[in-house]
Design a protein around this nucleic acid. Structure first.
Length: 760
DNA sequence: TACAGTCGGGG
DNA sequence: GTGTACGACTGTA
């Protein structure tokens, strides 16, 4: 439709959301700088591609004619990433984006031998590739009086550190209690200015109040707790029952998008995602159904949406792996690279010897067991992503057969270092932004309001960077390739070995190395300046960014519990010069440790941290014994609240799949018996009780009497945690009992003194 | 003794 | 719309 430029209206504002309109084209929402919310329409044909022998492509084109004017098919040439070649494809253009998924699935079902590209790209990413948009992008745009969007210019970038902030209207809705534990009585409602409580019953006035709130406040974001799993389904049900429509969607013509709950395996564990309720024209985010909410919060979700380009409501609920995949797709779209629908790349055949050397992961050493002083911890910064960018590792650069290719150490594979690959192109701006944010964080004063947002951003970036490496190795990832994955770990191991050599040349002893970090020691080294030469030498040798995590007052590397002569790579605790603690792998770090036991272990380490120098740790032993006796007394006298005895476990499988009556299985069965069915990936809380079955699930209607607690088992667990801390001080676990019992603990000291001298 | 079940780790 | 390692450790059979 031709519209004279004079009738176009100029606006500025922030991109809120976009989606396919069932009546054709896109619906694009903006938050106007003038305070208005704009729902605009735009034509947006979508093209995907098919690759097959020419004959087959013409059959496909013939079939596509049945869709009429809705679909156009034409031969074209496009670049395929893995080969780097332009291949012949059939470009299939669908006029209405809402129709595209159904048309594609019909074609894919009919032509299973054909390879499809660009077939399942989220609309938001297609739009991003065309207009440089992202959620919350600050834009200038023009519309006509009929509500059609004409021009769109994005005025900021996802890589800006301080983008113009959108004046978002946020409405917070929270039931007063967790609905899976008890029936909520009222809804807590808050916005920037006000707060109130609405009783759930009687239902009619409640519904009328919610409706009035939504109309008055017209929020851009409904921020709830348990909104996906309880509140919104409940509101919808009541609304239907009482025939009072609720304007939950801002777009009255759209239905609320519902996604069912599911359990899936990711990051080496079962994860549970509750059902989801997505709104149109405004966002709904359920803080209890959002990924990593505790890590980076709303600011982190905003940042993730900005850099990944995924819609806000999706970003809040998906794992960062999806985010990094989205970023790769956007780069590919912008660079006219075909995006495979299903990845079908096979691994190159390798000899047994090659497999052996290639299959290693990160470099892991056995630490020198015991207590150490004068130790610095040196880490490569975002090692794997840095390696990918620095060595140009990408599915299409690894194995490249060009004369200028370099050989990857210990892999025997070639790599193209000349032409920057897809993965490095994706990661480079992210790494650079992260570095800028971290530098600003060290420069800004503590009261600076930007700090909080910067921290959330770096925390969100961290997860994107971490998962990028995993994605490279997954054989069905769109842009994954196992050789690229192996190249990353090969360069990583090489860098760590270089770092070790550099440290040793400067007279340091390497106590331990773990994937991207190492612990080095030199008598008398106690400040960061003492370690600076090592950092400089490593940067010089490897070209990879490196930082000093800290200088320890002392650090203890723990032996295996099964064999005290064997070191384990990731069980240690220590105190930095500034007094902060670092712990890995010990009870206090684990989510399945009973709260009061974790607390006690932490208190013991804090007590040691206050002792100052490593030489004064010994003097803490009487105090540690007293602390343990105090905790045992509290435990046996049951002066601790019952919550302190709770054990939290992740339900790893469906109830009928357990082969061993583990505590998690027993507690899950107890809950199932009263109709509370837990799905894999959800957490179960339980108490350890005497006799059979030995556990009592926390969410059962009746609490067990405190006398039923199996205090002997708790005692064993407590002493085990205590032994972890005391072991490096020279107290073996079998002497722990006498250590606690013995009021005159001094009698134990000679033997311990001996162990002490050996270690320090 | 074997092995099923569970955790951490990245920062 | 996720991307299934690997080793330590514990408790059960």
């Amino acid at each position: 439709m031709e519209t004279s430029p004079r009738t176009l209206i100029q606006h500025s504002g922030w991109l809120l959301d976009l989606y396919a309109s069932p009546t054709g084209g896109l619906v694009v929402w903006f938050i106007g700088e003038d305070g208005l919310r704009y729902r605009l329409r735009q034509d947006f044909p979508v093209t995907f591609y098919a690759a097959a022998p020419p004959r087959r492509l013409s059959e496909l084109a013939g079939f596509a004619k049945y869709f009429g004017r809705q679909v156009e098919a034409a031969l074209s040439r496009r670049r395929e990433l893995f080969s780097g070649d332009d291949i012949q494809v059939l470009a299939i253009r669908v006029v209405s984006p809402a129709q595209q998924p159904a048309i594609f699935h019909q074609l894919a079902g009919r032509f299973p031998d054909v390879i499809f590209y660009d077939a399942d790209i989220p609309l938001m990413l297609r739009y991003a590739a065309l207009h440089n948009t992202f959620p919350l992008a600050y834009c200038a745009f023009r519309s006509d009086p009929q509500g059609n969007l004409h021009d769109l210019e994005v005025l900021d970038s996802p890589w800006d550190l301080d983008p113009p902030a959108a004046p978002l209207r946020v409405l917070i809705l929270e039931p007063n209690v967790n609905p899976s534990h008890a029936a909520p009585e009222y809804l807590v409602v808050k916005d920037k200015q006000h707060g109130c409580q609405l009783d759930f019953s009687p239902a009619r006035p409640f519904l009328l109040n919610v409706r009035a709130l939504l109309q008055q406040k017209d929020p851009d974001l409904l921020l709830t707790r348990w909104g996906d799993t309880w509140l919104l389904p409940r509101l919808l049900k009541l609304s239907e029952e009482f025939d009072i429509p609720l304007p939950l969607n801002r777009d009255a013509g759209s239905a609320i998008l519902y996604r069912p709950e599911r359990s899936y395996f990711a990051y080496n564990q079962i994860i549970h995602r509750g059902q989801q309720m997505h709104l149109s024209g405004r966002w709904h985010i359920d803080a209890h159904n959002a990924m990593m909410w505790g890590d980076y919060g709303l600011e982190g979700v905003f940042e993730l949406a900005r850099v990944t380009g995924l819609p806000m409501q999706t970003t809040a609920r998906v794992s960062p792996g999806t985010g990094i995949s989205a970023m790769q797709m956007t780069v590919a779209l912008r660079d006219d690279i075909l995006i495979p629908w299903h990845k079908q790349q096979a691994e190159d055949l390798k000899s047994a010897a090659e497999l052996f050397s290639a299959d290693q992961g990160g470099l892991v050493y056995q630490p020198t067991i015991g207590l150490h002083r004068d130790v610095g911890e040196i880490d490569f910064v975002s090692m794997y992503p840095s390696v990918m960018v620095h060595f140009n590792i990408s599915p299409e650069t690894v194995g490249a057969d060009i004369p200028s290719a370099e050989t990857i150490p210990s892999l025997g594979l070639k790599i193209d270092r000349q032409h920057e690959g897809l993965i490095p192109r994706t990661l480079r701006p992210l790494l650079e932004k992260r570095v800028s944010l971290k530098r600003n964080l060290t420069l800004l004063p503590v009261w600076d309001p930007r700090r909080k947002r910067y921290k959330a951003c770096t925390s969100a970036h961290k997860w994107l960077l971490v998962t990028c490496f995993g994605y490279l190795g997954y054989k069905n990832a769109r842009f994954g390739r196992i050789e690229a994955h192996q190249a990353v770990t090969a360069y990583g191991r090489e860098a760590l070995l270089e770092a070790k050599e550099a440290a040793e040349q400067l007279g340091f002893t390497v106590l331990h190395m773990y994937v991207d970090g190492m612990w080095v020691k030199k008598n008398g080294a106690s400040t960061s300046q003492d370690f600076q030469p090592v950092l400089d030498a490593i940067l010089e040798r490897t070209g990879l960014p490196i930082s000093l995590d800290g200088v320890y007052r002392w650090v203890a590397f723990l032996p295996s519990r099964r064999d005290a002569r064997v070191a384990v790579p990731n069980r240690y605790f220590g105190v930095f010069q500034d007094g902060t603690l670092k712990m890995r792998g010990i009870e206090a770090r684990r989510g399945d440790t009973t709260p009061f036991i974790a607390r006690t272990q932490l208190e013991m380490i804090e007590l040691l941290a206050r002792a100052g120098d490593a030489a004064r740790l010994e003097a803490c032993l009487p105090e540690l014994a007293a602390l343990l006796r105090r905790r045992l007394r509290q435990m046996y006298s049951l002066t601790l609240p019952l919550e302190d005895f709770l054990v939290t476990l992740r339900v790893s499988r469906n109830l009928d799949e357990f082969r061993v009556p583990s505590p998690a299985a027993l507690a899950t069965a107890q809950l199932a018996a009263i109709g509370k069915h837990l799905r894999p990936g959800q957490h179960v809380r339980l108490l350890l009780t005497r006799g059979k079955p030995g556990v009592h699930a926390w969410d059962l209607p009746e609490m067990p009497p405190a006398s039923l607690l199996d205090l002997e088992r708790y005692r064993v667990l407590l002493l085990r945690a205590a032994a972890t801390v005391l072991q490096p001080l020279g107290l073996p676990e079998d002497r722990l009992e006498s250590f606690i019992a013995d009021q005159e603990h001094q009698s134990l000291l000679p033997g311990m003194r001996q162990a002490w001298v050996v270690a320090v």
